[in-house]
Amino acid sequence: MMRFLGVAIMVAICLAFAGGLALTVWQIAGTPAPVNLPHLLAENLDASGVDHPITAVLLNFRSYDTLLEIGVLVIAGIAGISMAKTTSLEDPDLRTSDSLLYALQRWFVPLMLVLAGYLLWAGSDRPGGAFQAGAVLAASGVMMRLGGIPMDFLRPGMLLRFGLALGFSVFLLVAVASALAGSAFLAYPEAFAKPLILIIEVVLTFSIAMVLLALFVSAPVNRTEEPEEGEAG
């Protein structure tokens, strides 16, 4: 009876929440926007260095968000690998020996690497960009790992930390350099906007793929560590 009452109260709360939110959405949709953001963006697109409005917002007009985002990702990746407590994140126990996966991998991994490169390049004038490319790169890394291809760079060490931090540090370096050069923090000089955005996109792709892959491989618990972990609990 108590359980039923609890569910009923929760359903009522959720319905009230949905109703309130729907009312708000309806009211917001009814009022005209005070600023015409798409128009404003289209006017300034030429100054941004790229031709696609979303990439322009992500890496030029609101690049502060993107900088903080890659910062969050680096923190999450470092927290993930520090949870793992294994000497090697590349655990031979977890490899599969499925011949179908091997066959699939031989076709898919090169294709996915090319696709990641294309997505990265396409970001300048059509949908695509660092995040999509990084996700595809991380997915091909997951596939390679499942197939047991050795990936030495995933050992916790200098190389992994360097890869995790590369995107964030290059982005921050560009931001600070532009601030020191006299303009605002993260304001690229207009002549170098396109190459700078391209460099940042490349290192971001690399770092995002690294963070996602590190989080994937740090999730399983290593069997050889179990007695020690039991003591800790």
Binding site: L37, P38, L41, P53, I54, A56, V57, L58, F61, R62, D65, T66, E69, V72, L73, A76, G77, A79, G80, M83, A84, G129, F131, A135, I208, V211, L212, L215, F216, S218, A219, P220, V221
Partner: peptide, 29 residues
């Protein structure tokens, strides 16, 4: 479509993926 909220959502999706993966690591631990 307004590109500014779309870019914000794209940022949010990436952060959500990383946070979810970190949460899975923590839950498994």
């Amino acid at each position: 479509p307004d590109p500014v909220p779309q870019a914000l959502v794209l940022t949010g999706i990436v952060v959500a993926i990383a946070a979810t993966a970190l949460a899975v690591v923590l839950i498994r631990r």
